[in-house]
Nucleic acid binder design. Structure first.
Length: 300
DNA sequence: CAAAATTCCTGACTGC
DNA sequence: TGCAGTCAGGAATTTT
């Protein structure tokens, strides 16, 4: 459920709170959270004694730069949370899988009910190693995205990040015209556009006035421009609101606070309720095993 | 090669 | 009250 706005909300709190702090101890209490590593000890050894240099984001990944040029990558999956604690005495929530303790006594706890999320330490590519970067990301004319992909090979496959990569509408048009995917499938494919999931795909498509199953190559220039402009508009507003926290409270920022964009959702979770634009009841269908909400009139 | 289906997981919820 | 079945969905993997 955490998508770009939620991940960005977590990133911004962490950037404020952990940069320049030194990791003292790491505890892994559920190895599935660090499954990319052969052992939990390997994960721990790569973090202890390291100091945090920066906290960035690419797509739905939080990228924590360490002082040895390695990166701690955190992906929240469906139900992952990164929660701060003032000290080790604060009770650990259920499903706490990893604890990172700083020399200041503060802790970060990685909590994940369904264990779809993960943490791993990425080793920088060698001097002569060629990192194959996604063809869609290569359309970018600027931004931090390229730098992150070159430093973290595990993220090089990611497509266009709406904020970290600069891709003009004409190149975005070329992406759409090169594929024959339903728009929702394209928007949620991380190798094409990085950061959008089920909630924001529905919201973006509503705001752009486009049906979820429109085939990408069939869009007119005007429709493409509208979609290209709408993506950052919707995501920016969601970031301002601190992300979306649905009734399950599965998303909380590291200070344990919910977002408020759930109050601004136009269609997602609003089945049967009147569309804010035209009063037509919002529809819900299952599309590729995913709940999809839309207004049949506004997006028709 | 692209596109669609399957799989992982836990807790909330439904129906009997 | 208990219990089997269903649903939620990100992304790696498998199948078509």
């Amino acid at each position: 459920m955490p998508e770009l706005p939620e991940v960005e909300t977590v990133r911004s709190v962490l950037a404020r709170e952990i940069v320049a702090k030194k990791i003292k101890l790491v505890h892994v209490t559920d190895g599935r959270a660090v499954r990319r590593h052969k052992t939990a000890k390997d994960f721990r050894d790569q973090l202890e004694e390291r100091t945090i240099k920066s906290v960035e984001r690419l797509g739905k990944n939080i990228v924590v730069e360490l002082d040895d040029a390695h990166h701690l990558v955190v992906h929240l999956g469906m139900t992952g949370q990164v929660l701060r604690a003032k000290n080790a005495k604060e009770p650990k929530p259920k499903h706490t899988h990893v604890v990172i303790a700083f020399t200041t006594g503060e802790e970060l706890r990685y909590v994940d009910q369904r264990t779809f999320g993960e943490l791993y330490v990425a080793t920088p590519p060698g001097e002569d190693e060629v990192v194959e970067i996604s063809k869609y990301a290569r359309l970018s004319i600027g931004g931090n995205g390229m730098r992150i992909r070159r430093q973290v090979r595990e993220l090089a496959h990611l497509g266009i990040d709406p904020f970290e990569d600069q891709v003009g509408w004409d190149r975005f048009a070329a992406v759409l015209r090169s594929r024959t995917l339903a728009l929702k499938t394209l928007l949620t494919d991380q190798d094409i556009v990085a950061g959008i999931g089920n909630i924001y795909a529905d919201e973006i498509l509503f705001s752009a006035g486009l049906m979820y199953d429109r085939v990408s190559e069939s869009l007119s220039a005007i429709e493409i421009r509208r979609l290209h402009r709408t993506i950052p508009e919707v995501l920016t507003e969601a970031i301002k609101q601190g992300g979306t926290t649905l009734d399950d409270e599965m998303f909380l920022n590291p200070d344990g606070e919910p977002g408020s964009f759930q109050n601004d959702l136009q269609v997602h979770t609003r089945e049967g309720q009147p569309c804010y634009q035209c009063r037509t009841p919002v529809s819900k269908v299952t599309f590729h095993q995913r709940a999809t909400y839309f207004c049949a009139k506004c997006q028709g």
